[in-house]
Deep mutational scan, measured.
Amino acid sequence: MALNTPQITPTKKITVRAIGEELPRGDYQRCPQCDMLFSLPEINSHQSAYCPRCQAKIRDGRDWSLTRLAAMAFTMLLLMPFAWGEPLLHIWLLGIRIDANVMQGIWQMTKQGDAITGSMVFFCVIGAPLILVTSIAYLWFGNRLGMNLRPVLLMLERLKEWVMLDIYLVGIGVASIKVQDYAHIQAGVGLFSFVALVILTTVTLSHLNVEELWERFYPQRPATRRDEKLRVCLGCHFTGYPDQRGRCPRCHIPLRLRRRHSLQKCWAALLASIVLLLPANLLPISIIYLNGGRQEDTILSGIMSLASSNIAVAGIVFIASILVPFTKVIVMFTLLLSIHFKCQQGLRTRILLLRMVTWIGRWSMLDLFVISLTMSLINRDQILAFTMGPAAFYFGAAVILTILAVEWLDSRLLWDAHESGNARFDD
């Protein structure tokens, strides 16, 4: 018995066209964080690309023209004298008006014999932002004059995390709450300039795509075929072959399989920071003279006294001054041990922890910024005066060393310790 099946006739004509040209192939790229070699397709503007294995951002879609970056830099340069030299806060102490600005706080630190601690604050609040705007201006002028731009481009990517104007702005709020127990506070004209400078700096850093600047100024022929001998440069993120001198053909720094002496430098910085954190938390970090009496505060006791007036601000200072430094030390110690013992479990967790400490590390400088600003506000000789204690130097040095330890660690070593050939990683 035959089955009668109805015929289905399409209502619209289906047209099949042959592909007349070869589909576009992607360029081969190595991930600078996990060293995976993959094919990167062509990316349009405002599109980002991520590593298929570790999800690290390979290409950032946010990109401004150099002219727009230069305009932002010149605007920031105009704001800087007002943000640093004009009063941020006014207080009335014992019937006398006192003005506080950024430069005055750094000068008070240096004047009291601790120039190293003052230079830490100076670099993060004044030096690094000033280098940022002058570097962008150098790129703008240098591109037109045919100057060598490689050193500036190499420095810009590392400079971003040292620009800490946003953290200093939080420190202004913390210092205001600490001082309000002794005097009446009012915002100064410099505060508005400083807030504007923070906003412009944040926007500029978020749109400063150094890798795209490398592509514009020093374009290189990408690798179009897969080759395990391809290496990625950690300076400019170019994937290719080393030249005859073993250097990256684009930025001219040595092109090595792994960062040289990464573990040794990381261990040295980490152990030194552990040693410095002990006096930083045991010795007094601030000293207040009130009517001839002397009151010393460690980091913890200062947080407890701050909690009596504002528990939320005390929580912020606790996280930045105690929780973050010790968390960074514990995480980095764990990561280094996992590399030495070739741990194969929990790779995803370790990668996330490394990215976390990379982002939060700079916030530990908050305590030094609060001390710097408070020193310029309260300084009335023996009637009422505020000065920093010996722990300030140890704390600042420990924070900087932990930042350097994270920067010096080559994250690809975590993958080397893991089993080879993993296309995915999980716990």
Rank of each mutant, 00 (worst) to 15 (best):
V370R: 00
C34F: 00
L277I: 10
L191M: 09
E228S: 05
A391F: 03
K57G: 10
R25N: 10
P242G: 04
W363H: 07
I383E: 01
R245M: 05
H252V: 02
R97T: 14
E157M: 13
L414N: 03
W408Q: 03
L283T: 05
W92K: 01
L77A: 14
G118K: 10
C31E: 00
G26V: 12
N148P: 10
L337P: 07
L149E: 04
I136P: 04
D181E: 13
A398T: 08
L257P: 12
A2T: 13
L208V: 14
L414D: 06
M120R: 00
E228H: 10
L77P: 14
A137P: 06
A83E: 04
I378E: 00
P32T: 14
K12M: 13
R68C: 03
A187L: 14
C31K: 00
L335N: 06
Y50P: 02
G173C: 04
P32M: 11
I371L: 12
Q244M: 05
Q295T: 07
C266A: 04
G293A: 05
L413R: 06
L352V: 14
C248S: 00
T239V: 05
I14R: 11
A280R: 01
A183M: 04
H90W: 03
M155D: 02
F238R: 04
I311R: 03
C248N: 00
H237M: 08
V357T: 11
M332I: 12
L377K: 00
L323Y: 01
D181V: 01
C54Y: 00
T298F: 06
L414W: 06
H261I: 02
Y168N: 15
I299L: 09
D166I: 15
T239Y: 03
Q295L: 09
W84Y: 12
I288T: 01
I319N: 15
R412P: 01
G171Q: 08
N4L: 08
I58D: 03
L77C: 15
Q180D: 11
I96D: 01
G346A: 15
W267I: 06
I116L: 10
E22A: 09
A71K: 02
M365P: 00
Q108H: 13
W140F: 14
Q55G: 10
S411F: 07
G173T: 03
L373E: 05
M80A: 10
F425T: 14
G173P: 02
S193N: 03
H261Y: 04
F369S: 03
T110Y: 00
Y241R: 06
C233Q: 00
G293E: 03
M365Q: 06
A423H: 12
I311G: 09
R216C: 09
I316G: 14
S273R: 00
Y50M: 09
Q47I: 15
I288E: 00
L401F: 07
R221K: 10
W359R: 13
M76D: 03
L37W: 08
V399W: 01
I253S: 15
Q33W: 12
A385H: 05
L271F: 07
I199Y: 09
C233V: 00
G315I: 08
G346H: 13
I43F: 13
S39W: 14
D114G: 05
N291V: 15
A392L: 03
M103E: 06
P10A: 11
W140I: 15
Q29G: 10
L213W: 05
A187W: 13
G315F: 10
G85M: 06
G113V: 12
F341Q: 13
F393N: 04
G118L: 00
L145W: 11
C233L: 00
L132G: 04
I116S: 08
E86F: 02
V152F: 02
M1R: 00
I106N: 03
G246H: 04
S135F: 02
L230D: 06
W92E: 03
R221M: 12
S321E: 01
S286N: 00
L130T: 09
